[in-house]
Design a protein around this nucleic acid. Structure first.
Lengths: 246, 246
DNA sequence: CGCCACGGGTTTGCATACAATTGTTCTTGC
DNA sequence: GCAAGAACAATTGTATGCAAACCCGTGGCG
């Protein structure tokens, strides 16, 4: 070996490189990945390639093929809808448990701080939003929500449910900035953030769970809109490129 | 290769062997696994060992350690409670979606058949149950429930939630046969099975979801009972050996 | 006409040697 | 006495060659 590359080990670099190629659609869903071919392309040996593919299978982007090897996992429209539904279910469970069992005061104070950060992203005029900042703080808010019950199993499994790129809470944010309708929908989303924390503080478990689920359904609406009316946006939303077109 | 072992590849055999050692408690939670040591013990090279450990990490029994390598995942009592809660949440989601979206008539007929099979496990006297058969049919029932919405993403993720041995729908069945209280609780469980299918057929999504969740909470009660009153049973329930004692 | 056996090419499975990295312990200087 | 650093040991990371399994086409035979 000449030298370890920037991103630590060769396996890590391969993992990052392959992830990019999958998300960009360069390696389309259903395609089988051959170790030797990839090893030649990335100019490393088969061993770190296998390691990288194994990680990507854990991540949900690859699936193991009967008889050995991997193939790029393919997602139909329904799969994406279900993944978002499950994200809502898992975040809803975290919210409910935080309400039922009671969250740490310090953690709740942190949620209030994150809410305030999100509020600051909205300007005076309706439709005036700092998207970069909103997206950033939104991710933090959802991560903190998963940790709110103070249970590592919950936090871990919520993180897993938000792992696929199109199931992430910020999946439909950055690139839809242009559309006025999407901009206004952020006011609704932020209202839901406030109601969610209010419900948790009031120990209203069922309400908190329902709000979190409904919050995720906004992403389902965005997805449906993109696929039925605005397919030009598909390549602009991260991970949507690997959804098989009907 | 000298001898192809019974279970296909060496990696598979190693995976099975390691899984057994973890579940039996021979490799306790938190213990780091070293490739060379295991390779010598199992008389194979490091390569299939790594492959096996990677699979077990996907399965949730191992976790990757910072700086490389694996360690046996350790589960506290709370983790097991949460895993069962999440199993209930996921099965509840499958039940709700089956009710809301409507399941295939053929699939519903199959559920009725599985219900009848379970009914047949109960004898005339109260407390007279064929445990072997009940356990078997119970697994089938829960697997079919996950498939009822007809969505592969749902089926896959429910399967994942039932994957840890103590989170499985049959985890507390076989070895608790001795205790009369457990035997009687099976009547309650079977009543819930019936109500669940009734709710799904009547398109009562919220009811179906609530029943499935409550159904899982019986396992939580069993777990609590075992840990507070009957710790002698701990080694007899699969996977409970790897729960760290408080 | 269909089925099975066989062959060759393709791909993964496995072992092994060596490199790189990490963690640890001992030393040395202050 | 303590901290910084250097040598060392332990462990994983990587490359590579060979073996085995698999896939697919082809030809022989029932």
């Amino acid at each position: 070996m000449t030298r370890a590359s920037a991103a630590g080990t060769h396996a890590m670099r391969a993992q990052i490189e392959l992830r990019e190629r999958i998300l960009s659609g360069e390696l389309p869903g259903g395609m089988r990945l051959f170790e030797v071919a990839l090893a030649e392309q990335l100019e490393i040996s088969r061993t770190p390639i296998r390691e990288a593919m194994s990680h990507l299978a854990e991540e949900g982007l690859l699936e193991r093929v009967r008889g050995g090897g991997f193939r790029v996992r393919s997602f139909a429209f329904d799969d994406v809808m279900d993944a978002i539904e499950l994200r809502g279910v898992m975040e809803g469970t975290a919210a409910r448990l935080a309400a039922e069992r009671g969250a740490e005061p310090a953690a709740l104070a942190e949620m209030q701080r994150l809410l305030a950060d999100l509020d600051k992203c909205f300007g005076a005029e309706p439709g005036e939003v700092d998207f970069e900042a909103y997206s950033e703080h939104n991710s933090r808010f959802h991560a903190a929500l998963a940790a709110l019950p103070g249970r590592r199993m919950i936090e871990r499994e919520v993180a897993r449910a938000t792992q696929l790129p199109f199931a992430s809470p910020s999946a439909f944010l950055p690139d839809n900035a242009r559309l006025a309708a999407f901009r206004l929908s952020l006011n609704v989303a932020q209202e839901q953030h406030h109601a969610l924390i209010e419900a948790i503080e009031a120990r209203q478990g069922a309400r908190a769970e329902a709000i979190a689920r409904e919050h995720a359904r906004a992403a389902q609406r965005n997805l449906r809109h993109i696929f039925s009316d605005d397919r030009a946006l598909i390549p602009r939303v991260p991970g949507l490129g690997l959804v098989t077109q009907p």
